[in-house]
Structures are given as C-alpha cells and as structure tokens.
Design a protein around this nucleic acid. Structure first.
Length: 356
DNA sequence: CACGGACTCGCAATTACGTCA
DNA sequence: AGTGACGTAATTGCGAGTCCG
C-alpha cells in the first residue's frame, strides 16, 4: 500500500545547485570517491568548470541549467587531513595550500533569498575563516577547537565527525579525552544547540524539496551559502529525512487504522446478516422444506454461485482433488426468498447461462 | 580472484538544548 | 521564576557499500 504524502519531490533535480554536466561522467553513479576527488580538484582549479555529481545524475535536468547562474564556489575543504583520514587518492589534491580567499556570500544566490546575514553560526565559521586565512592554526586545530569548545556565546561544540577519521589513533585518543573532559570540566564542554534562522531553514527546506540527499559537493555549497558547517547541513538533512519518515509512518498508521475500522464494521455487518439468515431458516417452514441451497464460490473466478442439493445428497466433490465439483446450474435462490435478501440477485457462474 | 581493512555514508536511537505555554 | 512538553540540533553506534593493498 502506498500513500501519497508529498513532503518533497525527491525525483526533481537539485535545481538551484544544478551545474553543467559532462555527459561522459553523468552515469558514474557509484564511484563516489572518484567523484569527490575530481570535484574537489576541479573546484579548486577551475570554478566555472563544474562537473556532475552522482546525486544530480539521478534526475535529468542537466540541460536546463543553461542561463542559470553557476555556483562560483571556492570550496576549501574543512580540515581534509584530520576531518577524515584522507584516502591516498585524495592526498594528491591541492588542499594543503589554504588560500583563505573564501568570499562569504559572494556565491550565487541559487535563486533563493541571499544567504547573507544567515549567521547563526557565523561566529565559529568566521573564526575558522580568519584563522585559515592567516594560516594561524591547522585545520585540525580549527576543527578540534570546534569539538572541544566550551560553552562560549554562540559557538557550538563540534562532533567527532567534524574531524572524523575512523581508526585513527588521534581520534580515538580525542574521543577518550573528550569524554574524560566531560567529566573533568563539569559541564564546560556542554554542547550548545543553535537554532537555525527562518531563512536558513527555508533554504534548507527548499534544498530538501529538490533533493532529500546531498552529495559532498552540494553539502559544501549549501554550507557555504548558509554559513553553516557542512556537518550541520548533513545533520539537518539527516534529521529532516527522519522527520519525513516519521510523518509517513504516522500517515500509514492512520490509514491502516481506518482500514481496520472499516473491516471491523464490515465483519459486524456480515455477522448480523448471518444471524438474520439463520433466524429466517428456523422460522420459515417453507424455507425448511425447500432444497438445501448453499453458496459456493468458483475457485477459478471466485464468483459466487448458488448450489441446490438435497439433505441426503451433499454437493459433488471432485474425487481426485477433493475440491469443489463442477459448478451446478444456478437457480434462483431461494424460492421463498425474502425481499430483503442482501445477496446479489441470481448469482451465476460466468460460464453458465443464468437461469431464466 | 578472494579477502580483510579502511573509508564513507545513511539510518536509528538517543541525548540535550532552546522555546513556549 | 519554575516547570514540563515539545521541536529539533547534535551525538553515537552500527550496517552496508566501495575501494585498495
């Protein structure tokens, strides 16, 4: 059973993040690593030469981007070395030279309200920008600062995934130290939760309507556009998907509940009908004298037909299969049929002509 | 070619913060 | 001012897919 709750059309392309595609790369859906490698490289080298991405390749819409403002992003990866343990394939990327020339708010507005001033989280983001621009502090330090930042105004504590590097000894140590520090610092390390502004939420919502999942490029673009950290965008989409699913579950639940109520009512009605028929059978002597009539169902077409038998001669049953025998010729039921009889008039088998 | 480890991502469950009545 | 309910940002852990040595 499928219900039509529409909380965003996942089939539509990620319109406002659409970029020109290279036809030869538009079909490589599963090579995310290569995609990312190529994307980051191309972003860094040539802003106007945007390639495709695996997500946008799901929808077409690659041709209607002409005339649209292309995103001009200077996608500086966030702490590429320490954010995640970098793959050997990514290590050759020119990220090490942090140019710090990110232009906040100068990117395309994606046809939506400009993200300028959407700076709930701007303080930490700006701090990162400044520190990176001045080459003060490594990306790791910046990310680490986000992770261990004690409650300080508008700043948010980062998560382990902000510099996630699974299996890395450093990270394992930091996890441990972070948890230990939670105990030691008596709540100084309490995470701060920031509410997104209406504009940010609306922007993310629009993005979600376009596409309910993000590829890394889209995530970075959104993050930059909204002055959020990519992880925040990622989390927002994650939670948004969860809310959608929950909503869908509620709708499904409601539908099943109504189905159950309908079936219960139908069952009650049929029971009542059965009782009426039994009462009729016991109170109508003529009915009793008439040949026993049963309703049978054709196993092939599942249509109901009437079968007239005598009490001593049960309906024929196929000796081989034990199933019902051939459908007898239907006759009007019963001869003393009450006017209120609820069954369909003269049910007959389709292969047999109706009794006249 | 099979295999194991590393990496990445999404999801479910949960926590915790901010807001509001 | 205190409080509980609620919405939601954020965290954590896990499974699955992919890549690579």
């Amino acid at each position: 059973m499928e219900l039509g709750l529409s909380l965003g059309d996942a089939t539509k392309p990620f319109g406002f993040l659409k970029e020109n595609k290279h036809p030869e790369t538009a079909e490589r859906g599963h090579h995310q690593e290569e995609e990312k490698t190529q994307k980051f490289q191309e972003d860094d080298d040539d802003d106007d030469d945007d390639d495709d991405d695996d997500q946008s390749s799901e929808g077409d819409g690659s041709d209607d981007t002409q005339g649209e403002t292309h995103l001009q992003l200077n996608l500086r990866p966030l702490a590429p070395v320490h954010r995640r343990r970098i793959s050997p394939r990514l290590q050759s990327l020119p990220w090490s030279s942090d140019n710090g020339s990110s232009e906040n708010g100068s990117s395309g507005n994606m046809g939506l309200p400009a993200a300028k001033g959407l700076d709930v989280n701007r303080l930490p983001a700006a701090a990162e920008e400044v520190s990176s621009a001045n080459s003060v502090g490594s990306p790791f330090q910046r990310e680490f600062g986000m992770y261990r930042r004690p409650g300080n105004g508008n700043q948010v504590g980062g998560s382990k995934r902000d510099f996630e590097a699974t299996g890395n000894d450093v990270v394992e140590a930091e996890r441990a130290s972070s948890r230990a520090s939670d105990d030691d610092e008596n709540g100084l390390n309490t995470r701060k939760k920031l509410r997104l502004t209406k504009e940010q939420s609306a922007f993310l919502e629009e993005s979600f309507k376009e596409h309910n999942t993000l590829n890394p490029k889209q995530k970075l673009a959104l993050a930059k556009q909204l002055n959020l950290r990519p992880r925040q965008v990622e989390v927002w989409f994650q939670n948004r998907r969860a809310r959608t699913k929950l909503k869908q579950t509620e709708v499904d639940c409601e539908y099943l509940k109504r189905c159950c109520e309908t079936l219960t009512e139908e069952n009650r009605r049929l029971h009542k009908e059965l009782q009426e028929l039994r009462a009729l059978k016991t109170t109508n002597p003529f009915y009793m004298q008439s040949p026993a009539t049963t309703l049978t169902m054709c196993p092939s077409c599942e249509r109901v037909a009437t079968t007239t038998t005598t009490a001593s001669a049960p309906p024929p049953v196929s000796a081989a299969s034990g199933k019902m025998g051939p459908i007898p010729k239907a006759i009007p039921f019963p001869l003393t049929r009450p006017r209120f009889f609820p069954f369909p008039q003269t049910p007959t088998h389709p292969n047999q002509p109706a009794a006249s």
